[in-house]
Design a protein around this nucleic acid. Structure first.
Lengths: 341, 341
DNA sequence: AACTTTTGTCGAAACGCTTCGACTAAGCGT
DNA sequence: ACGCTTAGTCGAAGCGTTTCGACAAAAGTT
């Protein structure tokens, strides 16, 4: 464990000079810089993170707050994490995973006050989230992945649900579909004001109107069974249905299974588009799901970028960045069958 | 930001006394302890993590090393992470995610030398893994999630593949199946000596012999298409086949699709068991997959426990803990159809 | 009663770095 | 030739803890 003093001795300079070489805070002549660098290399010197953190009062670590429900992370959440981690690493920061639920405020307060973390990334943000108020009170820099109800004064990065729904509907319309169903999250999430559910609901209505087509929204559970029930309901109330947009991956698979059992061919009889879905899951289905691929890693990376920017002393005003999902056409969408009228 | 000095002043004691109250390193009278605690509460005092780390030369952070392939984490890996995170938190430790591939040794060397981390958890361990040698050389405490070829002197926690394969085969046998196929990972992984593939191959042979039944192993790609090809091959070479054991989830779904298209009913004509599969994925399939559910979170937690034990000053001798997957019967296994001989 | 322990507390020295003020030697405009 | 800025370096004072040695007072031991 070589220390900075060792390096300084070996290079024949003072410790502060070594520090300046490392941090670039003050100009150093090319000659001594090289001597110092050489000394470091010879000694396998690595700065002590704790000492550096103490003296500079910043740790170069950001915390990623996410409630770890025992159920594990989905592909999209995982992508947030990996995207954020990589972006942080690229900027010389580390990423610490903090399993902090929306409820245990004490835990978070401790984390924020310990000065272990320079800033926070919040995942699974609720429409009104106590973590937000707390961090704001503690004056800790943070960025949301998702959106709260009122986001003035906050920085957030989220999936652009409005755009995504619009694109999905446009894809179906371009294939000639004129009656489509949107299978959303459950009634309960809708009632609780869950952001993605509410936003997509609104966006769906807008898209229908814009294209002058008819459609229906069916809320359902995020399970295969939920998907089955939803498609049955949708077909009952709209027999002319030829296109389906579905929010949840499990439900999407349920829908495929139900349609198949009903003797309908996908995409010949009915086209299906799955929203906010990752490629691996989409390809699990047969036929592989046409999907709006979630920009998970990009969202994580963007959030990290914004956070680091603010750490650098950036303002702190409202900031919002929305990334749309990209349409990836696979096997579940095709031209609408022309029906006799 | 109250410091320890503030607390000491307010409680009318010296800083060292406050420190002893916090760490319990030396006896403190009940009276002063209470005064100190009160002062802390009044000031909302939280010890500064960096200062503490510098002075005590330990950070209370462990690093989780995992190569972040752009493809995201599967459910099992995610469970490792969440399990480890929670176990660490429960013991007063933090978990840092470090995207370190098996190759970039410099990155790891830096991490280990910076003294930011007290110890390491390695995921995605290869049969011969350079990270292992490096950490050993640097004398950093670490625990593997997975196993290397030669594990003497190492601590590792892994899925008990032998037991799992045994249990899966036993389940099929108990249902009357007498000819079964094992769809393993690809030929390439087998050739490269990928641990799980090799171990399950061996275990499958043992299980066949023990039960006195016939079977065949078919290596294939970890994709739906791979599964389709594998089951075709298996049925061709073993027409009497009624049971299938499959290693990869995507392949499992491919197998179901292929069987369905061949006009065979699952589980009536053929039973399928998926290995090392998580519940959510198993339930995506229709019918839901009977699977050997991977003990992901438990593995992560166990690894963390062992690591922390060693940090406490535990020995450092060989340690191996194997956790089996638990059989969860769902819709893809049933009694074997009796065939005419 | 004369000791050795144990208990409870304090002061000060680390821990390994950053950063501030000060100083010297150039470089520059006039 | 004169001050004035700039480049380059040093010494020392922190940063907020832990931990060690010291010491007084209380408690056991013979």
């Amino acid at each position: 464990m070589a220390t900075m003093t060792d390096v300084a001795k070996r290079a024949g300079v003072s410790v502060s000079t070594v520090s300046y070489v490392l941090t670039g805070t003050r100009p150093i002549s090319e000659a001594t810089r090289e001597r110092v660098l050489a000394a470091m290399a010879e000694l396998d010197y690595q700065p002590n993170a704790m000492a550096r953190g103490l003296a500079s009062r910043q740790s170069n670590i950001v915390g990623l707050l996410l409630p770890l429900t025992g159920r594990g992370l989905g592909a999209t959440e995982t992508a947030f994490v990996t995207g954020a981690t990589e972006a942080a690493r690229a900027a010389g920061y580390h990423l610490m995973l903090c399993p902090v639920g929306a409820d245990d405020g004490d835990e978070l307060q401790a984390l924020a006050t310990q000065r272990l973390l320079d800033g926070f990334l919040l995942m699974e943000v609720r429409l009104t989230d106590r973590r937000v108020e707390l961090l704001r009170k503690l004056q800790a820099p943070f960025v949301l992945i998702g959106r709260t109800k009122n986001s003035t004064g906050l920085a957030c990065v989220d999936i652009d649900f409005e755009q995504t729904v619009g694109d999905a509907v446009a894809h179906l319309v371009s294939l000639g579909h004129e009656t489509i169903a949107y299978v959303n999250h459950s009634k309960a999430s809708l009632a609780s004001g869950y952001g993605p559910a509410k936003r997509t609901e609104a966006a769906f209505k807008v898209a229908l109107k814009r294209h002058g087509i008819t459609g229906v929204m069916v809320p359902t559970d995020d399970t295969a069974a939920g998907g089955r029930a939803a498609i049955r309901e949708a077909r009952e109330c709209c027999p002319a249905l030829t296109g389906v947009l579905v929010m949840n991956e499990s439900a999407a698979l349920g829908i495929l299974a139900e349609l198949r059992e009903a003797g309908l061919d996908v995409p010949w009889d009915v086209s299906v588009v799955s929203m906010v879905t990752s490629a691996p899951v989409a390809e699990l289905a047969s036929p592989p799901l046409t999907a709006m691929t979630s920009p998970g890693a990009a969202v994580g990376a963007a959030a990290t970028r914004i956070l680091l920017e603010r750490l650098g002393g950036g303002a702190g005003s409202t900031y919002e960045e929305l990334l749309p999902c990209a349409l990836e056409v696979r096997g579940t969408t095709g031209a609408a069958k022309k029906r006799k009228r």
